[in-house]
């Protein structure tokens, strides 16, 4: 599966890319929502991993845009924020999966089943 990772933290982004490739995925990394928009629209078969706390356009807004596409990709939200913050940000949005940090490989495989 092609996985787009939108995460501004360099360490998290790098390690996530490593493990995803390790799991057999193709990985494209972005440090913010703006660079994903510039790169073009994800395919319906893709997955997009979005960190909720992004510089610039907020993660929740990216999630809203992705889910509003005619053929939305699989959207996985990752966040280290409190439940209150998450609820507030994601009002009415239903991402395919939500994983709270710290992440581990099991959580990622559950969110992105291979095949």
């Amino acid at each position: 599966m092609r996985v787009h990772v939108v995460e501004d933290d360099a360490g998290v982004s790098d390690s996530l890319a490593l493990i995803l490739r390790n799991l057999g995925h193709e990985v494209i990394s972005y440090s913010d929502a703006e660079s994903l928009f510039r790169a073009g629209m994800p395919e319906p078969a893709d997955a997009v991993i979005v960190d909720l706390s992004l510089p610039g356009i907020p993660g929740a807004q990216l999630v809203r845009w992705l889910l509003g596409l005619a053929a939305p990709p699989r959207v996985v939200v990752i966040t280290g924020q409190s439940q209150g913050f998450i609820d507030h940000q994601l009002r009415g949005l239903k991402p395919s999966w939500l994983v709270r940090k710290p992440l581990d490989v099991e959580a990622i495989t559950r969110a992105l089943p291979v095949g």
Binding site: I19, N22, S53, G80, K101, D104, V105
Partner: peptide
């Protein structure tokens, strides 16, 4: 407190994923 938890989550996540990548390989 909440902000710190968030901040600590970043390196912990990266650390866990790096180690798991090596473990899996």
């Amino acid at each position: 407190g909440a902000a710190i938890a968030h901040e600590l989550n970043q390196p912990l996540t990266a650390l866990m994923l790096y180690l798991q990548a090596i473990r899996r390989a």
